[in-house]
Amino acid sequence: MTQATQPKKGILVTDTAMQHLRQLRAQQSADLCLRVGVRGGGCSGMSYTMDFDSADNIRDDDEVFAYEDGFRIIVDPKSLLYIYGMQLDYSTALIGGGFQFSNPNASQTCGCGKSFGV
């Protein structure tokens, strides 16, 4: 596992994940934030969501975590209850590659790594 970039609290992002996120953001627009959340569904009951969002869409009750170079992650308050302290990593492996979620709040996870139960 690579070194994690850590804001004051909230979501840890490894250097590998941050590099990949910055590349993805650069392909779209430099002023986008990453919105991370959870929704019902998936193999274990809840699944992670991630998408780029405009800073104009940040709501008053959203938690905003600032990282180096102005990169921001936005989390709605309900999702934050389930993912607070989570680590986001990225793997380049041919099988099982992509974003990896390591969630200390999950009581169970499924094999795909994209869903969890609490």
Results as ranks from 00 to 15, higher is better:
Ser47Thr: 14
Ser47Cys: 14
Gly42Glu: 05
Val36Phe: 13
Leu21Asp: 03
Cys110Ser: 12
Ser29Glu: 06
Asp89Tyr: 02
Phe116Cys: 10
Ala17Asp: 04
Thr2Ser: 15
Arg22Asn: 10
Gly70Ser: 06
Gly96Met: 04
Gly96Val: 04
Gly97His: 12
Phe116Val: 03
Gly113Cys: 07
Gly97Glu: 09
Phe116Ile: 07
Ser91Val: 11
Gln108Pro: 00
Gly37Tyr: 04
Gln6Glu: 15
Leu32Lys: 11
Ile74Lys: 01
Val36Gly: 02
Gly37Lys: 02
Gly42Lys: 06
Asp56His: 10
Tyr90Glu: 04
Asp76Arg: 06
Phe116Arg: 06
Thr92Gln: 12
Ser79Gln: 02
Ser91Leu: 10
Leu88Ala: 03
Leu12Lys: 13
Ser54Gly: 12
Gly111His: 11
Arg35Ala: 11
Ala66Phe: 11
Phe116Tyr: 05
Ile11Leu: 14
Lys8Leu: 13
Ile11Val: 14
Leu21Gly: 01
Ile11Ala: 03
Gln87Met: 13
Asn105Ala: 04
Gln6Arg: 13
Gly45Ala: 04
Val36Trp: 10
Cys112Gln: 09
Tyr82Ile: 00
Ala30Tyr: 01
Gly117Arg: 09
Gly45Gln: 04
Asp60Met: 08
His20Glu: 15
Gly42Arg: 02
Ala66Gly: 12
Ser91Trp: 08
Thr2Tyr: 13
Ile58Thr: 07
Asp61Phe: 11
Gln3Tyr: 11
Asp62Ile: 02
Val13Ala: 00
Phe65Trp: 14
Leu81Val: 07
Gln6Ala: 07
Asn57Met: 12
Arg25Ile: 00
Arg39Ser: 02
Gly97Met: 13
Gly96Phe: 06
Val38Ser: 09
Asp89Ala: 15
Leu34Ile: 07
Asp76Leu: 08
Ser102Val: 13
Pro7Cys: 08
Met18Lys: 10
Tyr84Met: 13
Cys110Leu: 08
Arg39Lys: 13
Gly45His: 08
Gln108Met: 11
Val75Tyr: 08
Arg59Trp: 05
Asp89Ser: 12
Gln100Val: 15
Ala4Arg: 05
Ile11Phe: 02
Leu88Val: 07
Gly37Val: 07
Gly113Ile: 05
Thr49Val: 13
Pro77Gly: 03
Asp61Ala: 09
Gly70His: 02
Gly111Glu: 10
Ser47Pro: 01
Thr92Met: 14
Gly40Ile: 14
Phe99Leu: 06
Ser91Pro: 11
Ser44Asp: 09
Asp76Gly: 08
Phe99Tyr: 13
Ser44Arg: 14
Ala55Glu: 09
Leu12Arg: 15
Asp62Met: 00
Ala30Trp: 00
Ile83Ala: 03
Ala66Tyr: 07
Asp56Asn: 08
Asn103Thr: 10
Arg39Tyr: 06
Met18Thr: 02
Ser107Gln: 15
Gln6Leu: 14
Arg59Ile: 00
Leu34Asn: 01
Thr109Cys: 09
Gly117Lys: 10
Met18Glu: 08
Val118His: 01
Val36Glu: 07
Gln23Arg: 06
Tyr67Gln: 03
Cys33Arg: 03
Gly98Ala: 09
Ser44Pro: 02
Tyr48Trp: 05
His20Ile: 01
Gly85Met: 06
Thr16Phe: 03
Lys78Thr: 10
Ile58Pro: 01
Phe65Glu: 07
Gly10His: 02
Gly41Ile: 10
Pro77Met: 09
